[in-house]
Computed example of a mutant assay.
Amino acid sequence: MDITEHELADPWEGLLVAPAHGSDVGVLVLAGSSGRIERERARILAQQGVTALAIRWFGGPGQSPGICEVPLETFTTAVDVLQREGSRRIGILGVSKGAEAALLTAVHDPRVDIVVALSPTSRVWCNVGPSRDGAHHPYRSSWTWQGRPLPFVPMDDSWTSPEPDSGPVAIRGWYELSERTFAHLLPPAEIPVEAARADLLLIAGGDDAMWPSLPFAEQLAQRRRSAGATVRLIARDDAGHRPRLPGESPASASPHFQYGGTPEADALLGKAAWPQILDAITDGSPPALTS
């Protein structure tokens, strides 16, 4: 399918990729804590007939240098852009911290029709990196809405890695310890997905070494089901934090973190999820061309 691309510089850096004849389905594509613009993923989605908008949501000009008190309006503004492009069905596809943002945006913006959350969390966590003032500590919320920080769970800094200092670290245990230490802060920090109008598709690996995304996904699914809301969960016990969709390049190794899984298992999870992702985004119907 022929596609067109437009580089964006305002109100944030990004890439808008669309079928040459437009589409009535639009998807906001969010990376996790890498901070990158998910160009490849956006292009793959556009090849399927949807308009895809990938943005840099922190670390760019005028933005917080870290994931610290990032305004959720960053993402509702992206919904505005997709609507101006002719999208009548709006989705958000995010991974890790991007999935956290996607879920929260759907809670606060009823225009979102579907969230695809890869390796999600079920609650709001503290900042990853510094805020605009350059400070990492004391811990603050990752997000704000209408200028107010959302309730969050901090990290327990007494945690130490059981692994040697010389190699990449699995930090899942740090999140699990922090849940136990700050159990009294979990309820207000839960993401109330039961209040979102959007449908929800969750994709998670049981061998995630960054945080326990499969238990998180199961918590989100249970919350939705208890409220009688729609939810789908696709999982593989041997996959890690970075599922790879068909056509995507293999994920590069990190010198700092272990992500769990294997390239084969991560690709198999992405392959299993891909038809469900397309079905969820398009609501089971081929996207309509708009011009």
Rank of each mutant, 00 (worst) to 15 (best):
I92T: 04
Q47K: 14
L118F: 10
T121P: 00
F257L: 15
G247F: 04
G284P: 01
I37M: 03
W125L: 14
E40I: 01
Q219M: 13
G49P: 07
V112R: 07
P71F: 11
S158D: 13
Q47C: 00
P187E: 09
T181R: 12
L200V: 10
A31V: 00
L186N: 07
V128N: 12
W57K: 04
R224G: 09
R242N: 14
F257D: 14
L233E: 12
I203N: 06
E85T: 02
H241M: 11
R172P: 05
G134L: 11
A253G: 09
S96L: 04
P275G: 05
P168Q: 09
C126W: 05
T51F: 02
L82C: 10
W57S: 08
Y259R: 15
R225I: 12
P168S: 14
L177R: 14
A99R: 09
A195T: 14
E38C: 07
R224M: 11
S33A: 15
P246T: 02
A46N: 03
D24S: 06
H6M: 09
E69D: 13
Q48Y: 01
P149T: 02
L200D: 06
G228A: 10
A9K: 09
G261L: 04
P154C: 02
A102M: 07
A288M: 12
T262W: 06
A288C: 08
F58H: 10
A101C: 08
F58C: 04
G86C: 05
G205T: 08
G35L: 00
G98C: 03
A288L: 15
R56S: 04
D10R: 15
W174F: 03
D133S: 07
P120E: 13
S158L: 06
F152E: 06
R223C: 04
G49Q: 08
A221M: 11
V81A: 15
A102I: 06
H241I: 03
L53K: 02
T181A: 09
A54Y: 03
W159G: 12
G91R: 02
R225Q: 15
A78N: 04
R172K: 12
H6W: 00
I55P: 03
T74Q: 15
N127I: 01
G94I: 05
P250A: 01
Q276F: 00
E163W: 02
G261F: 11
T282L: 06
P162H: 06
G60H: 08
S166P: 01
R180V: 14
C126Q: 13
L201T: 09
P130L: 08
A239D: 02
E69Q: 09
E40R: 09
F257R: 14
L103P: 01
Q219C: 12
L220Y: 11
G167C: 11
E218K: 15
V25Y: 03
V115F: 11
P243F: 02
D2Q: 11
S178I: 03
L8G: 12
G270Y: 04
